[in-house]
């Protein structure tokens, strides 16, 4: 099975204090620590496990800049066979639909049976997988927490539905799945693993390699435009409730009631 996994390089929210750029419409990205989007590690792990069982190749792809190569190498150290970097000045300012358009062009260049994305990335939209599937007219399942492969015509996937219930669906291949965290345990990548893949060739493709008209992706095509960013006030911290347990609870209930928090 030929599997393409879409991965994104994202600022590490735990490591970074965010500041804004001078225009106030993006992060000041100069000194940020980056990592692979957490969900994408689960998608790559799932792909590797499928290929371990039924054979084939795992290719990881990202839309980004030169530095995004590092996330491809990390996923290759996990066990992905190939990496592809999609990078072009024309891609800058792409919205989710722009990213999906670029990924679609790569899918059509290849011969993939299965395309995996993470359920969500740093911008929290959780939409690129669904958009990609709709553009390709491929079957799609979101928030997948179980994958069963038998045969190469179809795939069975589990997902959580409303109220914590679970359902299984069958999708014809090729298809797109967005993978939920917790589906597996992504393997650990050590320095040695990264070193082993340090020399592997990673092709870089731009708009013309993908046959994309620059006007259909990037800033010009984006239908969602950033206006401004701000850092929300995290609040003044808590009011500490003191006294005996009884007193504390009496105070608590009174306060919650006065804030309308208790019916």
């Amino acid at each position: 099975m030929e599997i393409l996994v879409c991965v994104k390089r994202v600022p590490d929210t735990a490591e970074n204090e965010f500041e804004l750029n001078s225009a106030g419409n993006d992060l000041d990205r100069d000194d940020l620590v980056y990592s692979v989007n957490e969900w994408d590690n689960y998608a790559v792990e799932e792909a590797i496990q499928i290929v371990d069982n039924v054979g084939g190749n795992v290719t990881v792809v990202t839309v980004g800049d030169d530095e995004s190569e590092e996330v491809l190498r990390r996923e290759m150290a996990m066990g992905a066979n190939n990496g592809i970097l999609l990078s072009d000045d024309a891609f800058e300012g792409a919205d989710g639909k722009g990213i999906a358009t670029i990924l679609k062009a790569e899918v059509e260049k290849g011969n993939y049976d299965l395309i995996l994305t993470g359920a969500q990335a740093d911008e929290g939209a959780g939409q690129v997988g669904g958009m990609l599937a709709a553009m390709l007219d491929y079957p799609y399942a979101s928030l997948v927490n179980k994958v069963e492969v038998d045969g190469d015509a179809a795939i069975k996937v589990g997902r959580e539905i409303e109220g914590g219930n679970q359902e299984m669906n069958e999708l014809d291949l090729p298809c797109v799945l967005s993978i939920q965290t917790g589906i597996n345990e992504p393997r650990y990548v050590g320095i040695r693993g990264i070193r082993k893949v340090a020399k592997l060739e990673i092709p870089v493709k731009g708009a013309s390699d993908l046959g994309l008209d620059a006007a259909t992706v990037g800033d010009a095509a984006a239908k969602v435009k950033r206006v401004d960013y701000f850092v929300p006030d995290m609040g003044d911290g808590a009011e500490m409730l003191d006294g005996s347990t009884d007193e504390i609870i009496a105070q608590l209930i009174e306060r919650i009631k006065s804030k309308g928090g208790l019916a």
């Binding site: 639909k97 999906a100 709709a134 799609y140 959580e160 239908k223």
Partner: peptide, 23 residues
């Protein structure tokens, strides 16, 4: 922004080529 709403809106956005803001 339920599971269904997020999925439907993303698909519709791509099919109709219209802008979408999630959540």
């Amino acid at each position: 922004a339920t599971r269904q709403g997020k999925e439907l809106s993303a698909n519709v956005s791509a099919t109709l080529d219209v802008g979408l803001a999630q959540e």
